[in-house]
Write a protein that binds this DNA or RNA. Sequence first.
DNA 1: GCAAGGTC
Length: 935
Amino acid sequence: MVAEKPSIAEAIARALSHGRATPRPGGSLKVWEFSAPFLNKGTAQYKVAGVFGHIYGTDFPPQYNSWDNVNPSDLFSAPILKIEEDKKHVTASLQREAHGTDYLVLWLDCDREGENICFEVIQNVEPFMRHSNGQQIYRAHFSSVTPTDIARAMSNLGQPNPNEAAAVDVRQELDLKVGVAFTRFQTRYFQNKYGNLDSAVISYGPCQTPTLGFCVERHDQIQCFTPEPFWTLVPTIQPGTGGPRGATKQAIVTAVDQAIKKVRQAPNDWILTRWKNILPSSFPPKQMTETILDSIPSLNPVYPTTTITPDRAPVHAGFPELPRTESSSYPATFNIRETVEMFNGNPGWRGYAQQVLAGPMRAKEGLDAGDHPPITPTQCATESQLGGGVAWRVYEFVALHFLATVAQDAEVQAPLPLPRDACVSAEGAGWAGLGGQEGRFTSILHWMQRRDEVLPDFRQGQHVTVTSVELREGRTSPPDYLTESELITLMEKHGIGTDASIPMHINNIITRNYVRVQPPDPPCRPSNIIINKLIAHRYIRADLPPDPPSPPQPPARLALNGSRQLVPTELGVVLAHGYHRIDSDLVLPAVRSEIEKQISLIATGRAGKEAVLAHSLSCFKAKFDYFAQCIGLMDTLFESTFTTLAQSGKPLSRCGKCHRYMNLISTRPARLFCPTCDESYNMPGEGTIKLYKEIRCPLDGFELVVCSRGSDQKAYPLCPLCYNHPPAFAGDDHLERADQGPAGQMHLNCTQCGHPTCPQACAQTMLGPCINDQCTGCLILDTSSGPHWRIASTTSRPQDRKAPLVLFRKALLTDVLFWAADCNVCPVMIHVAPGAHRVALAGTRPKKEKDEPQIEEDPEGPKYCEKCGEYRLLDVTFHRDAVPGGRPFVRGCIQCDPELHDQCQYSESRARHEMDEEGDGTENYQGRKIFNPYA
DNA sequence: GCAAGGTC
């Protein structure tokens, strides 16, 4: 039995085994085992495991990875590959578990993606089953993981649906090709022209771009808004003295003057004509869906993709069942009364339950999305049972929410907000206030009660006297920027993304610098995210200020106060407007719904996979080609908003070709641009770039720069040209192989370069092999690290290595070491002699400074430690006032010279180290004065 | 460096 995730697998195993199943590790999977009857075939040995969503991802073959050599338009006809997601070898574990099994039951989530994963699982399991003829493969259809539902699914096993799975395959291919083609094209086009876009990638996607479109649409509404005046009549009225029903009500005219006149003429002749039930909180909430839960964490001011999952875990383990569901209608079998009666078990809620039971107890009409029933408590719990805390709060929220959904409406009979006096509109009159709330849902969700209105004792049809009337003037105001929850609602309405992916799309347009987040006003307290979410949704009462009479409030926005607003950046606005100029479809939600429509044809069997794919691809390719042809329309918007490369950045280092200054453009993507040669040189994405001592690269004459990333990270010099186009020498085949690596473009900094004549190159700064036995790299003196001199390890993960790494030995000084800067994962870092003025490798000391002590140096003397034969000698010059042991200058081996050894201290760079996971103890030597913790 | 969909 294979489920979509481990938690579902566990629930299935427990239900089918009546709690007897026990887990064991099965590679990357957790396998639950037990024996129980299976269908009508007697007792069977069960194995239940959960995968982790999709097993495979979709991508192009490696030869399509180059942004330079592949025409994006050709991507539409490129082949695609299914590549195992970088997890923990799910396929290997599945195959191992599949050996010798007789039956496979697929318990993947009951949606299209789940159907697709079914076939990914089959692909790995079927070949290893005892009888692999497909007859022993079943699909379980279930909508929740309660024991009843699981048992029902077991007795109604069906077959996986290949059409639904094929629809997902097509969606994957379309999303990939459309997204990558547009992204590469527009990124290259605009990055080569403008210097202040501040986005490393100008991405396009059928979900993220319409999401941006919503934000820009609201932005445009705000920009175009013209305020208009409006007037309100605000009479003060009192109960009348009775008498015949007045007839003037119908005559209330819209003209303000006439109305006032009329009021003055007949102040006693008014009748309340209508009670309105339009205050949102007068209705019980809807049945709880995933949206309600998920839109709560989306209000989290700390990080948009934080989900409720961690907080949900304890709830899963305990009481309410929280399936991922969009349905808000209960199945016919759902017993409301039983569920309500359950809450008699909580003394604090017994009253609520009784009160609800006394009413009509109707669930609200809702939507059946075909997934799960609404989120509903399944057991009664008390605070102490759940251990208080977040779990209890979430549970309480779900439980009370449920009770409220089946309680009666509240009696609130006027729009809010209203002043304490009544308001009369041209259509009639209304009152704000609350009637008796006994038995109403607001007595359960008491925080939804308004406490500042008391319903006056008026009834419909009653005569009232208008004692005064006031004319108030206002001006209409523009809408606010979209709040995150409004955006989520829009996305759901238009089918952009899924409940699980919507936060990702929003996060995408934030990190790409298309929109920025405007903190909520007033800001949420970030101390307790869950509580804030609940407050933001008005499910729990916020800390209200003490009770002084509040001045008349302007109409309260029902928009959620705690929600963040999304304000488009210039880049976001220009992009969205640009799409509108060329092809509005690209930025409208229709682009997504069209894809859904097309693949639905496959899912329902009305069209073949190949036909739909070919048709959709040709449509999108035509759109792409037209877009590429008309990009100038978008570009004119960029021109008026951004500065060209030539006008960007500040002069920093000199070009080796024209010997003029290149400008450092520090907004993303960081690069040096030579206006004379019209050439860009990418810089590392992290860290600050400075000029490095005006030293020039001996290979190409470019001035070196140094990239530093904070005091506990390795700083390194680099040549702008070598970094982007590593020099070919001493074994060109290394580079050929390097270019084909999964990392794509290869970057080479000076500490990694092995050029024999360059003083910055590795061979000139290398001390010897790394002290970490598991590290195959070597120790490098960081020549830019003074005055806090450091020695760092440089190495690569074996799988990233582009060439066989030649271990350092004296005789191999000029052997080439090629590997990518980003692959440096060994954390070893040695702080040399805190009192040192200067540290250099023996024989490489630069010329003396004037107050440096006179050092006698034997030019022919040994450069390597003759004792260990491994490490290069180090020249350390001390400050006058920090000379240890009386010698201002020491030449020695950091391993064998006791004095130098004592001066060295070990720590770790922040680079994570995969070897740590093997427990080699690198954690243990931080800050300790032990020379070689690996020895 | 690229999409969107699962999940951890």
